[in-house]
């Protein structure tokens, strides 16, 4: 029987190694897998590279992981927020490395990893400081930058419902990076509100087919998502 269901977030993350590259879904707090990030903090792996759109808000989630001193490097598009003080302080103190990636290049590099693409030419960033040192090409008169895929050891994502085969549906703008990141990691772990019986999800609305999901954990309706 194929079942990707795990009984707890900690069990689902037990094998995350020191030095791992971990993708964390979410845009702001929408789609941020808070319970999984909490479990990663408890699990104890260190020297992590975090790939996420932002670099943490307030004192929870990725910010808490940063504050615990467990992150070596952040790959993201928009670290600066009104409440990104944890990242800001570590960055200014030289305690965390930053790779700033334009948002569309970030998601496309992740998509490329999941789709087996070895690199791609994108117009985004051409001629700007974020393309410095990168290979460029002019195609049909337009400038492009060569960007490479971003692979991960682990992806942490949040959906609304899953079945035991890992098929998932999402909710509103909480989908964002989730389905893409799941495809780009060796092990993708999803937290959902509820795990439902096979056949319950409308196959026409499954936004992430289970082939991209390694493990699912039901965490109930996250009260903290609204924080």
């Amino acid at each position: 029987m194929l079942s990707k269901v795990r009984t707890s977030a900690l069990e689902a993350l037990a094998d995350v190694a020191d030095g791992a590259t971990v993708m964390v879904g979410g845009f702001g707090n929408a789609g941020m897998p808070m319970e999984l990030v909490d479990a990663l903090i408890e699990q104890g792996s260190r020297d992590l590279t975090i790939v996420s759109n932002n670099a943490g808000n307030g004192t929870t989630g990725v910010a808490a992981l940063l504050a615990a001193g467990r992150v070596r490097k952040v790959v993201c598009s928009f670290p600066r927020q009104s409440d990104s003080f944890v990242f800001d302080e570590l960055y200014r103190a030289g305690k965390v490395e930053l790779e700033l990636v334009p948002q569309g290049n970030l998601v496309e590099r992740i998509r490329a990893a999941g789709a087996g693409i070895g690199g791609f030419f994108t117009p985004t960033g051409y001629g700007t400081p974020l393309a410095e040192g990168k290979e460029t090409r002019v195609i049909d008169g337009k400038g492009y930058v060569l960007e490479y895929p971003i692979h991960a050891d682990v992806a942490l994502i949040k959906g609304r419902l899953a079945d035991r085969w890992g098929n998932m549906v999402f909710r509103k703008t909480a989908r964002n990076f989730g389905p893409i990141m799941a495809s780009a990691a060796k092990v993708s772990v999803a937290q959902v509100e509820e795990i439902v019986e096979l056949g319950t999800l409308d196959p026409e609305t499954i936004a992430l087919p289970g082939i991209f999901v390694s493990r699912v954990v039901a965490v109930g309706k996250s009260a903290r998502a609204a924080a």
Partner: peptide
């Protein structure tokens, strides 16, 4: 909290509106 804009502020969806992932959005 699952329906926000690029500035992370709460918004609404009009009739006829659609949601999609980041790859399609970009």
């Amino acid at each position: 909290p699952d329906l926000i804009n690029a500035g992370k502020q709460p918004v609404t969806l009009l009739d006829g509106g659609a949601f999609f992932d980041h790859s399609l959005s970009f």
